[in-house]
């Protein structure tokens, strides 16, 4: 277990928390999460969204007013947080390989593992990133994502100039389909199921569809 100090807590949009925790000697692989423990000992996993060489661990957390997020939303700078060693199975770019052809599809805070991977691998250039959010303010690091790959931002609850109005699943026809591309899907289960089914209908094999479910609708 690790115990580290909260460096910063911000709320870039209503219901969204950006939490920075001092890194200490924590070692991780992009795609890893850690389990954060509230004072009652209840834990939930959260995906790291910082790069491997950054001095803090960054998390993007949807405030669901649940057992753990309610506590996270009330954290302040300097508080000590208990969390597990990083662990994970979701590996954008197949264990961080910058050469793998990859496509990212994320909803909400599901963008975290992709940001971590891109920050860790400056040479990585994914084929595409489809990123779905409720409002434009919920979208994180858009300029950074756009600087690294063709990014389509889909906004469901408002119309914003330059962004697509609708769900990521409305834009699947933009995804490149090829035998050497790996598809990484992260966020809401319904999106992940729909995108998986669509990809398989296009002949993409199960072994090239990588899934990380954060939330069950």
């Amino acid at each position: 277990m690790h115990h580290q100090r909260v460096f910063q807590v911000k709320s870039p949009a209503p219901g969204l928390i950006e939490l920075l925790i001092e890194r200490g000697d924590v070692v991780f692989t992009p795609g890893d999460c850690v389990a954060l423990f509230n004072p009652a000992g209840v834990s939930r996993p959260y995906s790291i969204s910082s790069g491997q060489d950054e001095p803090y661990l960054r998390f993007l957390i949807r405030d669901m007013q649940g057992e753990v997020t309610e506590w996270i939303a009330n954290l302040s700078e300097g508080d000590i947080v208990k969390f597990s060693r990083p662990f994970g199975w979701f590996r954008p770019g197949l264990n961080g390989d910058a050469q793998v052809r990859s496509v990212f599809v994320a909803t909400g805070t599901g963008i975290s593992p992709f940001i971590s991977y891109l920050r860790t691998q400056p040479e990585a250039r994914p084929e595409m990133c489809l990123y779905g959010v409720r409002t434009a303010a919920d979208a994180v690091d858009v300029a950074f994502l756009e600087s690294r790959c063709p990014t389509t931002l889909c906004v469901t609850r408002e119309s914003v100039n330059g962004y697509v109005r609708g769900r990521v699943t409305d834009r699947l026809d933009r995804l490149p389909i090829a035998d050497d591309v790996h598809y990484y899907l992260c966020g809401l289960d319904a999106m992940i199921d729909d995108v998986s089914t669509w990809l398989e209908s296009k002949g993409v094999h199960f072994s090239r569809i990588h899934r990380e479910v954060f939330f069950n609708a």
């Binding site: 277990m1 999460c33 850690v34 389990a35 423990f37 834990s43 939930r44 996993p45 969390f83 597990s84 060693r85 662990f87 199975w89």
Partner: peptide, 18 residues
């Protein structure tokens, strides 16, 4: 350590458990 946290787990496994 497990990705799930089933209430009946005979091992008491859950995310981050060590």
């Amino acid at each position: 350590n497990c990705n799930l946290s089933c209430p009946f787990c005979l091992e008491g496994s859950k995310p981050g458990d060590d």
